[in-house]
Amino acid sequence: MKLLETTWNHQSELAIFCRTGRYNPIPGVNEKHVSQYRQLVYNVVDDTLQSAFPLTHHLLTPKEWDGLVNDFFSSHPCQSPQIWTMPKELWAWVANKRSPLLKKYPFLDELLWFEWLEIELFMMEDKTTACKPEGNLKKDKLVLNPEHHLKHFTYPVHLKNAKYITPSDKGHYFLMMHREKVTGKVNFTNLSPFLARMLEILSEKPFTFKELIEQTSTEFEVATDQQLEEDVIQFLDNSVRSGLISGFQ
């Protein structure tokens, strides 16, 4: 390290000012213009977080939002060199720090997570899987689109306007998000626990419809009647159309 401690300290002071807005005099600095750095840095971070979390931004009051961004950026050292992944750090920070905002909005960490997952899925590197586009839904093994997130929430952050979510909404919610191959768009499917488990099984490896329904029914201790089979077939048919099921083996 060829940098002297004094130079290091001056750089650190400017960086601290950018993160916190607290300025300690630095030799040679134009005190009138140095404020631009705090403003530029803060605006970049704020704009990025607003774009990533539009639902959360809409939910919180302006004072709450500004407080959240300020607290996060001043106390958390952002680790990602890629700014588009920085919002994930806000979600993790809120969840781990148990932000005071969670008292008023107990679902806030899940709302942030839901919003981040959509970005992550939309942006994720391409994953391919070997399968045929055409096949027999009832006989062939089904191949799940590998570009998906299957998640469990305790609040219906994907179903209700966040302003109207209350503690009484607490429960079990299952969401499948997948990325369409052609358009790259993210699709959302709200699932029953039965279908969520069935897709979880399918995410491990390809199974036939019969294998899937038998294994899931056994785990749920329900009988496999004709109605259940018809409902599952209908769901799988829709899943092929939407691209949640990529194809057949």
Partner: peptide, 15 residues
Amino acid sequence: CDNAHLYDLLPIPFT
């Protein structure tokens, strides 16, 4: 700096 990304370009001291 200080193990935190700032997402903007800060001036290096001319030293």
